[in-house]
Design a protein around this nucleic acid. Structure first.
Lengths: 185, 185
DNA sequence: AGGTCAGCTTGACACTGTCAAGCCACCGCG
DNA sequence: CGCGGTGGCTTGACAGTGTCAAGCTGACCT
């Protein structure tokens, strides 16, 4: 009665809430349906099973991810290095604050990566990073983009940017110093 | 009757086989027990539930991972750059050939990362990479180690090193060129 | 010889995803 | 206006999962 104009969005929102609260294990079709106030089989009419819901959540996550990168880049001013660093820090901030979504977007094997709803937002995210790299490209190929992308993604995945320090590292250097290393500080 | 000196190892081996054959979803306590020829509740006497089995598999995977890095480094000769590149390519080879184990080692949230059996092998892997980086370190801190580690881990996680090319990239540059970029070619 | 206990089995429970069948309001058409 | 049809949801069921409690068994120790 409150507000459920369409159930699909409500289920996606419930799934994102569950993911943020209890991690991947808590994200369940039946729990999402219960949160949305419908029966356990209702989600089947809007998604292709659990992978379908996960894919829809990942698609929405890619959109907010692209927005995060965009605003972080623009907030960093006009200097090309500051813009690239800002974009990377947006990347790290998103990974640290939305670990569940980050996991879903990049590593979860249940999401259907061939879903056409996934490509646009993912491509937009990549293009924002790619544009920030362009002023520093010294080769014809895209090796710098791949290098920066791999670097920031690995840094985030290994937990250096997160609140909890990773396993064997006593003190991870700031990402800005590492990026300088790559850009021939 | 064939050979099961201790069930614990048999369960770990069965779990690794299941992981290699059917991915994370196929790795199940009951399936591993069935493969080992015991009842579905037998694993509970050797592991702390499913997370315990996953942790034990991850610990063994870290050992073979460290061995892979070690032999790849030594097979690369004496030149410091060749040794570092060889170590990284061992990293990428392992990630591509043992995607399930790689996932378990670094991202699976079910493994108990505080398990004391996990730290030694993980630390050994890190030290092999760290030693290969040492000739190139130009700062007192370990920023280069973290940079190389993040770079190769991100490169592997994003699928550049794997058999299937990743999403938006038409042609990923070879990792050697990217590593040269980081080492100020 | 008798007791003890680790290791394994059996059985049960709650929970998951998924499918089949049915219900019901709404919408278009005769 | 009546009426068939269909999308959206419910109910019920099934196989599969992890996990716990209880019981059996054989070896080992005293």
């Amino acid at each position: 009665m409150s507000e459920t104009p369409n159930l699909r969005d409500a289920l996606i929102q419930a799934g994102m809430d569950l993911l943020a609260e209890g991690g991947t294990a808590a994200l369940t079709l039946r729990q999402a349906a219960m949160r949305a106030g419908v029966s356990h089989a209702a989600p089947a009419h809007h998604f292709n099973g659990l992978p379908g819901l996960l894919t829809a959540i990942a698609a929405r996550a890619f959109q907010t991810f692209a927005d995060t990168l965009h605003t972080a880049r623009d907030a960093a001013g006009q200097d090309p290095r500051a813009r690239l660093l800002g974009t990377c820090q947006g990347y790290l901030t998103f990974a640290a604050h939305h670990a569940g979504l980050f996991h879903l977007m990049f590593v979860a094997c249940e999401v259907d990566r061939s879903d056409p709803a996934l490509a646009p937002a993912a491509l937009r995210s990549y293009q924002i990073l790619s544009e920030a790299c362009r002023p520093f490209a010294t080769h014809a190929d895209d090796r710098l983009e791949v290098a920066v992308w791999s670097l920031v993604h690995g840094y985030a995945s290994l937990g250096f940017g997160g609140p909890t320090p990773p396993n064997p590292m006593r003190h991870a250097p700031q990402f800005a110093e590492i990026l300088d290393e790559l850009l021939r500080g």
